[in-house]
């Protein structure tokens, strides 16, 4: 009986202590308002585990920010809940410019998937990376073009792997279904590489994954990328047409931005936007993103904000229909 008691007592105490942890960490703010920002070390919250693609981008950018701002930028990984743990933590921090965070595309998705995340809680300070979706089939597949695949998927269910349930790649599959009226049946795997591998091994009919994940296998000739779901073709696969060129108006993919809790003081906002823009242009950062197969970008907050809001309402309607 006691074990049962422990099991039910757990969530309550867990909730109590995590609440405590979230509310009582604001002991660093205050003081130093007179001196020019920044005077103290900056924390960069990454909502994923150390070592992943988002973490590497954030760490490289943090190193560049250190030279721009002349203070230490310490990366803090707070993973869990598909990224919601870290985002929730970021939103709860003081908007003083000393806590920044890496905002993934999930920032605008999680709120519509049952998590308590509101994109309005964050001030985007600039987009730094873009990861367009691609759709690919095994090298020995009978489908040579996107149209052949979609045509087949009109009459029968085709299995399409993706990196996980609720991921942007699963959403991309749904978006494609909606646009083309097809029955692509998303099969969530545990990560991008296993999803791509399932297509290479012929266990599924196709895979929807980020351009960096399909590019390597496509180069080796193990996969055939049928289309890239972006406005422009990608440098790593110049021969692959965009879905739009093929007559399907679908543009969807992952992205990464740097953000802060909403409500930054104006001067702080400006200092950070300039620093992030300079860091995003740096050779070290551009090289890292390109080497990993993704697309480095440098989009100002003015330009990014409308896109951010558009994405939010897009996922709202996309997930409402599921």
């Amino acid at each position: 009986m006691r074990t049962t008691f422990r099991n039910t007592a757990m969530p309550i105490s867990v909730a109590a202590v995590s609440l405590l942890a979230l509310t009582s960490c604001a002991d660093r703010a205050g003081g130093g308002e007179e001196a020019a920002y920044p005077t103290e070390d900056i924390t960069m919250v990454v909502p994923y585990d150390a070592g992943g693609a988002s973490d590497l981008s954030a760490r490289t950018l943090a190193a560049e920010l250190e030279t721009e701002l002349d203070v230490s930028v310490i990366v803090e990984n707070r993973s869990g809940g598909a990224g919601s743990v870290g985002l929730d933590y970021l939103a709860s921090q003081e908007a003083d410019g000393y806590t920044l965070g890496y905002l993934p595309v999930e920032t605008v998705m999680l709120g519509h998937q049952g998590y308590d995340i509101d994109p309005a809680d964050f001030d985007p300070l600039g987009q730094i990376v873009s990861v367009p979706a691609t759709i690919a089939v095994p090298a020995d597949s009978e489908y040579e073009t996107l149209d052949e695949l979609l045509e087949a998927a009109e009459s029968e269910e085709l299995s399409v792997s993706n990196s996980g349930t609720g991921s942007i790649w699963q959403a991309a599959t749904t978006a494609l279904n909606e646009e083309a009226g097809t029955q692509l049946s998303p099969v969530p795997f545990d990560g991008g590489a296993p999803a791509v591998n399932a297509a290479v091994g012929g266990q599924v009919d196709a895979v929807v994954a980020g351009v960096s994940e399909t590019a390597v296998a496509a180069e080796d000739g193990r996969l055939r990328v049928l289309a890239i779901l972006d406005d422009e073709r990608a440098d790593v696969m110049p021969d692959v047409p965009t879905a739009e060129e093929l007559g399907h108006d679908v543009s969807i993919g992952g992205w990464g931005a740097i953000g802060a809790p909403a409500g930054l003081p104006e001067e702080t906002h400006e200092v950070l936007v300039d620093a992030i823009s300079a860091a995003a242009e740096s050779d070290a950062f551009v090289e890292l993103i390109e080497d990993s197969g993704n697309i480095p970008v440098n989009v100002s907050p003015e330009e990014f904000q409308p896109f951010y809001e558009e994405e939010n309402s897009r996922f709202e309607s996309l997930f409402a229909e599921e």
């Binding site: 969530p11 867990v14 909730a15 995590s18 869990g80 743990v85 998937q113």
Partner: peptide, 13 residues
């Protein structure tokens, strides 16, 4: 993707 036995605790999802 539905929550199972997480009792609403974010970290357990």
């Amino acid at each position: 993707g539905t929550e199972r036995m997480t009792f609403g605790v974010l970290e357990l999802s």
